[in-house]
Every structure is written in C-alpha cells, then in structure tokens.
Amino acid sequence: MESLEGNRDQPCMRPQAIAPWLHAVWDSLDFHSFPNAMLLHGQSGMGKFEFAISLSKALLCESPDSQNRPCNQCEACHWFDSGNHPDFIALTPETHRKYLPQGNFDIDSEPSKKTKSTRDDDGDATEKKEKKNISIEETRSAIESLSIGSHRGGNRVILIYPLEMLRPDSANTLLKSLEEPPANTIFILLADRLDRVLPTIRSRCRLVAAPRPERALGLAWIREQLLRISQFRMSDSDIESIYDEQGGAPYAVLESLIARHNKDEKDELSISIQAARYLLESLSQGYRMNWLDAAEKIQKARFAVLLATMQRWVSDLQTVTQQAQPRYYPNHATTLSKLAQQARPLKLFKFWKSLIQMRRNENHPLAIRIQLESLLSQYQQVFED
C-alpha cells in the first residue's frame, strides 16, 4: 500500500473547511502517490466527514497545480459543489445525506422537515424513520458501476461513512473491490469505531487517525463557529460543560449547542439532549432512582446517545472511586464522590461490561424501552448490598 507521506517541496493548500486540529493530517497527504483506500478513523464529532468531503473534492479537482487542490475554479470543482460530479459516489445512510455537497451547510438553519422522524409508543422507529444503515442494494449498485471507466477520465472517488454501519453482506461486497481495486478508483472510508470494522477491510486500507484537539483549541473553534449564529446566548461555563460532556468532540458539541438554540421539540437530537439531561438526573440519585419512570421518559431518544451518556457517567464514577477527577462531568464531582462511596466495585464493573456489550448493538436496537429498564435496574443495584 502506498504511503500517505511523500517528499514534497510544500504541502498541498488546505481548504478552509479543514478543522485546525486536522491540519497535520491534511499536510501529510501526498496527492502524487495516493493509496487506493484510506480509512480515516477516530471519535465521532471530530470533523472526519467534512475532511473527507474536502479530500474527495481535491482528488477530483482538475487543476494542473497539484499543490493547489481543490482549486474551486475548474469545472470538476463546480460540479462537485453542486452535487453533480459523475465520478463521486457517496454511500451514507439517509440520516447523513443532508451533509453531502448538495445539502445545506448553514449551521444557523432550521432542521429539514425531511429529517424529522416518528416513533411508536415503545420508542422503536416507525416506517417513516430515516434509515441509519447503508443498504446492500446501494452498495452493489455503486460497486457494479466501477466496471465502467470514469466519466471524466481522471480519478473516481467512493466515500463511505460510517463504515461500521455497513451490513455484513455490504461489507463483503466492498471487500471484494478493495482486494482488486479498479483503476483510478479511490476509496475514502470513515469509521467512528475502528474496532467494529472487519479486520480484512482494515488490512487493505491506509489507516489514518483523526486526533482530538487540545481543549483550548477545540473551545476556540466552537466559539468562532457560534459567532455565525444570530442571537445565540450561552455562557462560557455552559459551553465548556457541554464540551466536557461530549468527550471533547467539537463538531458534536457544536451540533448539540445548535439544537439547544433552535429548541425544536420535535427534532430527534433535541429530544435526545433533553432525555440525556433527565437520564443524568436519574443516575445521580443512585439507589433512590426510579428506573421504571426514567426508562419511560427517555425511551424516545436516540439509543446511542443514552448509552454514551451512561457510559461516560459510569466512567467518571469509576475514575472517582480511584481518587481521580471526573473527565466528562466535573460539575457533578460532589455527587459522583458520594455515589463512589456507596457503589459496590464488583457490581459497578459488571454494569460497565454490560454497557460495553450493549454499545456493540446500539445501531440496531430492539425493544429499546425493555433494554433501558434492564440497564437502569442493574445500575440501581450497583448501590445495594
């Protein structure tokens, strides 16, 4: 596999869309010798998708100056921006398509009505719910199209995000193409959880890690983005609190702040944010929590968000039991300290393992309410003899 690094007089010019903590990754790219497949991985909310969009555009750019890509001037760049480039294929779930070039990137915009969803009384998605998986039909259609040469005679780019959302049959279809990649075809694969990607796929890609920014840099970037939102009002301490809760992932923090600003009670993310807040209140009660009531009130939120909230809370709880400072919820340090004194270490460890096991299937949950009741009941028992 070719290296991403090469001997160059100067790095390729960085697009403005590249987040500052990803500058080093961009500067390491060698457009003269780019691999057939690159797998960019790292924590969700680090800007990997935005990075991949800019990278796809640069690889398709037809400027003769390879150090100035994308040039934003050539016909290929204009086609890409309009979402009509014939040699760019994006395989993403319906929930992510609004972020593609033809989507609306205005962070101050209201959520699209097309992204609204409904759930039934048990919290499971109805038929109107946007699909969160990449279908085998879409994958096969994209792979079959590779047998035809590129439309413009240059590179062809296939972007897949999130890679771990591919169903097994779709992953096997992709693997066959990675084993014998068509000429001038570049796969840009993105994964939030590298451990969920098939080892056979990982072994055929150049792995590139998306780093987490220093806290000061991440917060500075977020405040810069928030200046674009009219009438945005939130204290620095609240912004920093949310930053910690999101594990230092700037894009996830920004998305959460915008959802709070818009206050759309029907938006799925807004529902999840409110549910996560209520979940924290319940978790802070320890053995006194009403787990049936909690499960009832949070069941319509994104299951992945609820699991992440529980996992971060328990991680902090375990940290405090070791006489260390909490990472995600420093504002709850006093409560965590009291709970740490009541928690039974063995039960806490078993609950942590249950959360890890549950997160492996968070994207395909069944009977969400029942699973929440089981987890919250087990959490309550952590504080009982």
Score class of each variant (00 low, 15 high):
Thr115Glu: 11
Leu163Ala: 01
Leu219Glu: 09
Pro86Thr: 09
Ile107Ser: 04
Leu283Gln: 07
Pro35Ala: 12
Gln311Thr: 15
Ile158Lys: 00
Leu40Ile: 06
His85Glu: 02
Arg260Tyr: 10
Asp30Cys: 09
Thr319Ser: 13
Asn363Thr: 14
Tyr328His: 03
Gly149Trp: 00
Leu198Met: 15
Gln322Pro: 02
His96Gly: 06
Asn84Thr: 04
Glu2Gln: 12
Ser270Asp: 07
Leu375Lys: 08
Ser315Gly: 05
Phe34Asp: 01
Ala308Asp: 12
Gln341His: 13
Gly286Asp: 00
Tyr161Arg: 11
Arg228Tyr: 08
Phe80Thr: 00
Lys113Tyr: 03
Gln322His: 04
Glu240Phe: 05
Ala324Val: 11
Ala142Val: 02
Cys77Arg: 02
Phe51Thr: 09
Lys98Tyr: 14
Gly123Leu: 07
Leu175Ile: 11
Ser377Ala: 10
Leu91Ile: 06
Lys116Ala: 15
Glu130Tyr: 09
Ser354Trp: 03
Arg228Phe: 05
Arg152Met: 13
Leu279Ile: 10
Tyr287His: 13
Asp192Ser: 13
Arg369Cys: 07
His78Ala: 11
Pro111Asp: 00
Ala252Met: 08
Lys353Tyr: 01
Leu280Lys: 11
Pro20His: 07
Ala171Phe: 09
Ser141Lys: 04
Leu29His: 08
Ser235Thr: 01
Cys71Trp: 04
Leu372His: 03
Glu296Gln: 08
Ile271Lys: 15
Ile356His: 07
Gly247Cys: 09
Glu281Met: 14
Ile89Leu: 12
Lys347Glu: 14
Val208Gly: 00
Asn72His: 08
Ala52Pro: 03
Glu75Met: 15
Ile158Phe: 01
Asp236Val: 15
Ile258Pro: 04
Gly83Glu: 02
Ile368Lys: 15
Ala259Phe: 02
Tyr287Cys: 13
Ile186Ala: 01
Lys113Asp: 06
Gly247Leu: 06
Lys113Thr: 12
Asp244Asn: 10
Val25His: 05
Arg140Val: 11
Arg260Pro: 01
Cys61Tyr: 06
Glu180Ser: 07
Pro11Gln: 00
Gln380His: 05
Leu257Arg: 08
Gly103Lys: 08
Leu198Trp: 05
Phe383Ser: 03
Asn7Gly: 06
Leu280Ala: 04
Asn184Pro: 06
Leu174Pro: 02
Tyr161Leu: 03
Glu130Asp: 06
Val253Phe: 06
Glu50Gln: 12
Ser147His: 09
Ala142Met: 06
Ala294Met: 13
Glu144Pro: 07
Gln274Glu: 15
His151Pro: 03
Ser66Glu: 11
Asn36Gln: 14
Leu55Pro: 02
Asp169Val: 10
Arg156Gly: 11
Cys74His: 01
Ile188Gln: 05
Leu166Arg: 12
Asn290Ala: 03
Ile298Glu: 09
Ser230Gly: 12
Arg156Val: 07
Ser112Ala: 08
Gln318Lys: 10
Phe31Gly: 10
Phe383Ile: 08
Leu100Lys: 05
Pro365Tyr: 00
Asp316Met: 03
Ala301Phe: 08
Leu178Tyr: 05
Leu22Val: 04
Phe187Gly: 07
Ala191Pro: 02
Lys57Thr: 00
Gln371Lys: 11
Asp106Val: 02
